[in-house]
Amino acid sequence: MTIYFSTAQIKELAPYSLAERRKIIELANNKLQAPEKLAINLLKLLVLIPPFIALARIDSWWLMLPIFALLAGYFLVMRPVSFWFIDKHLAGAIKQFERSRDKTEE
């Protein structure tokens, strides 16, 4: 299993521009089933709630630690997990994107 931190690392999306990759990722995201979306959202809660609780309890310059934990948790955990979930829907999303792009070119 390959871990992707960016859409540029996904081989299937290499020939596309950043804007096109975002559209394809959005299409693949829309194809996720309800249990998959639930799992992603629960994981987001597990990653985001502890730093926010720490933010509510800290008054000094230590406030920056939960903020960095929040950012690191999101980018180091959530993005790869999201890419892992949409991986199986990526081929269909690319086909759908190509069809819509061909229709707009006509």
Rank of each mutant, 00 (worst) to 15 (best):
I40N: 06
L46H: 03
L32I: 10
I58C: 03
L76W: 01
K44Q: 03
L70Q: 04
V77N: 01
A39I: 04
G92E: 05
L65R: 08
E98I: 13
I10S: 06
A56K: 10
Y16F: 15
V81L: 07
I24D: 01
G92N: 12
A72S: 10
I3W: 10
K31F: 09
P50N: 09
K23H: 07
L13K: 02
E20K: 13
F52Q: 12
M64Y: 14
K11F: 01
M64E: 07
D87E: 13
K95L: 12
I53K: 06
K95R: 14
R79A: 08
P35H: 12
E26P: 07
A28K: 02
K11Y: 03
L76N: 00
R101T: 11
L90V: 05
M78C: 09
R21G: 05
E98C: 07
E26F: 13
K37V: 08
I10M: 11
R101H: 09
I67N: 04
L27T: 06
R57L: 15
H89M: 04
L45G: 08
A19Y: 08
M78W: 01
A93R: 03
P50W: 04
L45V: 11
R99H: 12
M78L: 15
E26Y: 01
V47D: 03
F75Y: 15
A39K: 14
L71G: 12
V81M: 02
I86A: 02
L45T: 06
S82C: 05
I58T: 15
M64I: 15
E106Q: 08
L65F: 13
I10Y: 02
I3R: 09
P50K: 06
E20D: 08
I58S: 09
G92D: 14
Q9D: 02
F5R: 04
R21Q: 14
M1Q: 10
F83E: 00
L76H: 02
V47K: 02
R21L: 01
K31R: 15
R57T: 12
S6W: 07
P66D: 04
L46G: 09
N30E: 14
K88Q: 10
Y16P: 10
Y4S: 05
